[in-house]
Simulated assay, not measured.
Amino acid sequence: MAYSDSLKPLKTHLAILNLVIIGLILFLFMAPGNLLGHSSIKDINSVSAKIIAKNGASIRDMPSRKGKVIVIAPVNSEIKIIQRKVQSDIIDHKPGSWVKVEYLGKTGYIWEHLID
């Protein structure tokens, strides 16, 4: 009888340990950014923005007005921002930066004042 009584705390600890392990496993599978690098939440660095230029905005192959226009995104189009402040510039006496974006599967650069 004394031997059985001494095992009760051990059984209680094992039951608690099992619950903790099950909880950790559930957390790893349901957590937004699990250990495998998959995420159900958008990457913090990849943010959406909308084109606010009335005539649309040119997305270029390099961060410069000299860059070739890849595609023109119409006003209110949603674009994915890949990187902000790629290169500083002054356009029409207005200082700003070029932003690396993705639109319709194409990656290019857009003047920051054309997006919101």
Rank of each mutant, 00 (worst) to 15 (best):
W111E: 02
W98C: 00
K42D: 10
I82E: 05
Y109L: 06
V47K: 15
A53E: 06
M1Q: 13
N18V: 07
G108E: 03
A57Y: 01
L26K: 13
G23E: 02
K85Y: 09
M1I: 07
I72S: 09
G67M: 01
V20R: 08
I41P: 03
M30E: 13
R84A: 04
K106E: 12
R84T: 11
T12A: 09
L35S: 08
D89F: 03
I115D: 00
V69S: 05
M62T: 15
T12S: 05
V86C: 01
E78F: 07
V75L: 08
D89M: 04
H38S: 10
I90W: 06
V99K: 02
S39T: 09
I115R: 00
G67I: 00
K8F: 05
N76T: 12
Y103W: 06
K42H: 09
S48R: 07
I51E: 00
L24E: 06
I72V: 12
L7E: 14
G33Q: 09
V69D: 04
L14C: 15
T107P: 04
F29M: 12
K66A: 15
S46W: 07
L10P: 03
K68C: 08
V20G: 00
I16D: 11
K42C: 10
K100R: 10
K8G: 01
I21R: 09
L35C: 05
K11C: 12
F29R: 09
Y109A: 03
V101Q: 01
S39G: 09
I21M: 08
D43A: 08
F29C: 10
I59D: 00
G108F: 02
V47Q: 15
R65T: 12
A57S: 15
